[in-house]
Design a protein around this nucleic acid. Structure first.
Lengths: 200, 200
DNA sequence: CGTCATGTTGATACCCTTCAAGGTAAGTGG
DNA sequence: CCACTTACCTTGAAGGGTATCAACATGACG
């Protein structure tokens, strides 16, 4: 039976003891690092079906907070239970391993994005990353998908201010690349957006 | 028998097939992401005794380049050989696991640093991180240690320009916090530096 | 109906980049 | 031994990208 969380509420506080392996069943969440002065950095968005982090299988706590973006339902597998799954399903171990490697790659890509790219590129990159993840689940139709992110979330994910995100979203819209409105993101020019975002 | 690499030379190119599990025996190296237009982001510095990345044990390639900073000697364990070690030493698996978790935490911390902190804080943070790693090896005496980094390396690690790194190093020196000169880094005011760098 | 979260826009400020120039030290080949 | 190069550090001036501050509009919601 999944646990519920309200939008904008904190699901997990950094360094708290983890009772199991948490997984988001429904809704969007974010992994976020908080500074004492209020600055925040979103490390990744956690989508339905995602483990919050593979680290939970081996570690007793996380170094980041987890916050609900939308209303969220999540479950936490007791570690023994999870190990039971692992033992019974030989493919699961492999999936867990590649998920862990993917998390590392993602973190590295994020660092490069934040360190070396400008606002437009970071935002384009974020949108394409979300698109690719949601496409796998069949949630993208006609290059449109439901995106519950507020401009504040985009700001915290890209290391920008909400005000500047607002302006950049405006220029992206005017350039005919993407449009984020009413909780729906529309990619109007996928090749153009890729060219803007691609870090080869 | 270790393989040698010259300073400033590329040891590994992103997405190249990995023949084994590489480990730096001697010298400093860096994991770096390169963009097509020449921008670079250093993901981490690899010190003597470090695996370049635990991912090598399970994956066939890396998503980043590896570059020698100083002269470097490294070895690459054949994967079977490494698995032999793993089977024979029960503690090694645990060490590998916690190294992997640490790598993930580090990547997250780096992202937060790059996304949300100013130049002074990023540089202070980098220096303290290096200090803590070298301290474990007993390479720090009197808050001084050998540091072969050029200002360009610091720039690529912190997402800044070498010119700005130069200016910030100047102010840090004048504030009596740290001094980097002649390949040696001196932390003159450890508490002060921590206060500047600490991200709670 | 007030309050809150959110989006929008303008004016101003600042952190950092870019461009440019020059200086030192080490290495190399004549 | 000297000219030349290369790598690196330093400093100044100017500009740009983004932040900050402020004000206002809108819709959701209790």
């Amino acid at each position: 039976m999944p646990l519920p969380a309200r939008p904008r509420h904190t699901i997990y506080r950094a360094h708290e003891a983890l009772d199991g392996v948490p997984l988001i069943v429904d809704g969007w969440a974010a992994r976020v690092i908080r500074f004492s002065d209020g600055r925040r950095q979103i490390l990744s968005f956690v989508l339905p079906g995602d483990l919050i982090s593979t680290s939970a299988v081996f570690a007793g706590s996380f170094g980041f907070f987890v916050e609900a973006i939308t209303a969220v339902r999540y479950i936490s597998y007791a570690r023994e239970e999870f190990n039971g799954f692992l033992a019974s399903d030989p493919e699961l171990a492999g999936a867990l391993l590649s998920a862990c490697l993917a998390e590392k790659d993602e973190a590295d890509r994020l660092a490069a994005n934040l360190g070396r790219r400008r606002a437009e590129e970071r935002i384009a990159s974020l949108f394409l990353h979300l698109r690719d993840r949601l496409q796998v689940c069949g949630l993208v139709r006609d290059e449109r998908f439901a995106c519950p992110l507020r401009q504040k979330h985009i700001a915290d994910a890209t290391g920008l201010t909400p005000v500047h995100v607002n302006r950049v979203l405006g220029t992206l819209r005017q350039s005919g690349l993407v449009d984020l409105a009413d909780g729906e993101l529309t990619i109007a020019d996928l090749p153009g957006l890729r060219q803007l975002a691609d870090m080869r």
